[in-house]
Design a binder for these strands. Structure first.
Length: 191
DNA sequence: CCCTGATTCGC
DNA sequence: GCGAATCAGG
């Protein structure tokens, strides 16, 4: 496939939205993430808004390439610093230094089990699992990490399970078990 | 191991 | 210009 106008448009759009190269590639189809990254660079929109928060590495370019372009002084200026797109933030009263562009967000997360609704066995197993959870952060979630939330989102005691998720499922095996319980299992154990 | 973007370089 | 291979990092 080639970089038609439309495809480049979508690329720009998604890249601006903060989508990863692989996601963009998947969306476009017919290209790999490498192709996307390559194109992004060629388009000169490599650095995403905000400057270079990442210390990155290799700041120096020891590559001694004294290639003196004799004929015609090409355009040395390329990726000029044009980092001021600045999205018009409606208002950010809250001192939110760390902004989250957009979260891939897959399936909606189920509500945390409000104790008493699920079987004691399941509850017990979840607690067990939570002790083994990788405690990954939001950014570390991928399509194959368990997205089971643990803790209170409003506090620091919040993280995601992060264990290997079942292919096609948003959670690890254990959490899939407690997340998708047939209603038959919530048999009223009233007494 | 999964993933990320960055760079290089033959085509 | 393109993008696979490779690199460097998380």
């Amino acid at each position: 496939m080639s970089w038609t106008d439309e495809r480049v448009e979508l690329l720009k759009k998604m890249w601006a939205e903060g989508q990863s190269a692989s996601q963009i590639a998947k969306e476009l189809g017919g290209v790999t993430r490498n192709a996307v990254i390559g194109k992004v660079h060629r388009l000169g929109l490599s650095n995403r808004v905000g400057g270079t928060p990442e210390p990155k590495t290799k700041a120096a370019e020891p590559a001694p390439k004294p290639e003196a372009r004799p004929a015609a002084q090409a355009k040395p200026a390329r990726a000029e610093a044009k980092a001021q797109p600045q999205r018009t933030e409606p208002a950010a009263p809250q001192p939110t230094p760390a902004r989250k562009p957009i979260i891939p967000a897959g399936q909606p997360l189920p509500p945390q089990p409000s104790a008493g609704e699920i079987s004691p066995e399941a509850l017990a197993s979840v607690r067990e699992i939570e002790k083994k959870a990788r405690r990954i952060s939001l950014m570390e979630l991928t399509e194959r990490t368990c997205k089971w939330p643990i803790g209170d989102p409003a506090t620091e005691d919040f993280w995601f399970c992060g264990l290997a998720a079942q292919p096609g499922k948003p959670y690890c095996e254990a959490h899939v078990g407690v997340a998708f319980q047939p209603m038959s299992s919530r048999r009223d154990r009233r007494r």
